[in-house]
Design a protein around this nucleic acid. Structure first.
Lengths: 144, 144
DNA sequence: TGTTGACCTTACAGTTACCGAAGGGTTTAT
DNA sequence: ATAAACCCTTCGGTAACTGTAAGGTCAACA
């Protein structure tokens, strides 16, 4: 099967499929005669696996681990589950961050008239001196 | 003022401050005699502004717009507010996505025994054929 | 047979917002 | 004088691709 069909069946872009070969995730055979990639059913199965794993937010290196576990009949399901639980933790952290940012921004928006005048508490908040920290300013600079 | 002090006062890394010059955000004078950057109080004010705007999640190009508005006494606060409201929208979209991903992953984790056996509904979900879409599989491939 | 169009190939540049390292000059303090 | 603490430029790297250029291959149609 050519790359275009493999890409279609897995739901990936052809560029992505080539990229996955480049980084050693799914390596197809080649036709003799021309340079075309020849994807087997197993290759396509792996591509689809990767598409699904990426779609739920796993990074490519974790996807590599997941694919290796998928291919390993000796796997222990606890290893797979650990990766999923770890990802859930990361998502929760992201959610907290985003919720905090949103509340900061909503606080700003509520204080801004949003009219034709130049008075704007938003830009003033961004420009405020270090010492007068706004109550809804949740993210502090990194003085490390 | 040298770059190190300007970076400290704005809460940015010196690398970041140099980068902001490179992309035309805050361009300091130079001392004559050596090649050192010389940051004015206004420069530092702008750097601090950028630090704050970045900290609440704005991308650099939007930060550029925000800074331009900050510098423009003829600004209309409605323009500033529009950028903030737009960002709030983006964050809400991200939140929805993350919540969906999390529920997908939690659903997977709950179905996986997580023991020494190789049976794992998680990898099976990733590998499932296209037609049998799992009920908690919320993200679909991009067939565009 | 020629040619059109859809497909395939490689290689390189660009994206975001920086960070790290290499290799060197300047200033300040001891 | 010399060492520490600054400063400089330039290049390469990050994640996960996407876009572009320049070209080779294949099937069908006139």
């Amino acid at each position: 099967m050519n790359i275009g069909q493999a890409a279609f069946e897995s739901g990936l872009a052809t560029k992505t499929v080539r990229y996955y070969e480049e980084i050693g995730l799914v390596i197809p055979a080649r036709y003799s005669g021309n340079d075309y990639r020849n994807y087997s059913a197993t290759n396509v199965d792996h591509l689809r696996f990767l598409q699904r794993a990426r779609a739920v937010g796993f990074g490519l290196e974790v996807c590599r681990e997941l694919l290796a576990l998928y291919c390993d009949p000796q796997r222990r399901s606890i290893e797979v589950k650990a990766l999923v639980l770890d990802k859930i933790q990361q998502i929760e952290t992201q959610l907290h961050t985003l919720i905090a940012l949103k509340s900061t921004l909503v606080g700003m928006a509520n204080k801004c008239a949003g009219d034709e005048s130049a008075d704007c508490s938003i830009v003033e908040t961004f420009a405020a001196p270090m010492k007068s920290i706004m109550p809804f300013m949740l993210v502090e600079p990194n003085h490390e």
